[in-house]
């Protein structure tokens, strides 16, 4: 199972890198989203996969039953997904704003902050 997930992660990263190499900022952003999902899967896999019970402690017990799943990677992934959601929502609005104010999504043409003639001097 770990092997399968590792291959999936590799595939996701490859697709992400392909998308991120594009000059289009929106494609780059989609690549980033794939990459962050790959990272989340990586954490999940790093915590070892078990066909375990949910890590819940029954009423009256002090310990969870043996063989429960490791809850920590899931908590980490959840945190990472939430943070990623916020970041990407912001980035998406920013890309849209860039398109309306700068009139382009091509990174080569985004030179307002670093004007060309200044770089040539």
């Amino acid at each position: 199972m770990e092997t399968l997930l590792s291959l999936t992660i590799g595939l996701l990263v490859a697709a992400a890198v392909y998308l991120m190499l594009a000059r289009n900022v929106l494609k780059f952003l989609f690549g980033m989203i794939l990459l962050s999902n790959a990272a989340n899967l990586l954490i999940f896999t790093a915590g070892r996969l078990t066909f375990g019970e949910p890590p819940l402690i029954a009423a009256g017990e002090k310990l969870p039953p043996p063989g429960v799943a490791n809850a920590l990677p899931q908590a980490l992934v959840l945190t990472a997904i939430v943070i990623g959601f916020g970041l990407f929502a912001f980035a998406l609005v920013l890309v849209f704003r860039a398109y309306t104010t700068l009139g382009t999504l091509n990174t080569d043409d985004m030179r307002v902050a670093e004007p060309q003639e200044e770089a040539d001097r």
């Binding site: 991120m20 900022v25 780059f28 952003l29 980033m32 990459l35 962050s36 790959a38 990272a39 989340n40 990586l42 954490i43 896999t45 790093a46 990677p73 980490l76 990472a80 970041l87 912001f90 980035a91 920013l94 890309v95 704003r97 860039a98 104010t101 700068l102 990174t107 985004m110 030179r111 307002v112 902050a113």
Partner: peptide, 24 residues
Amino acid sequence: IDGGIKYVTLNLISTVLFLSAIGL
């Protein structure tokens, strides 16, 4: 906005790399 795009994209990459490193 222009500077923001560059700042945001490169910092996002670093973030994801940091996260993967933590996972490993």
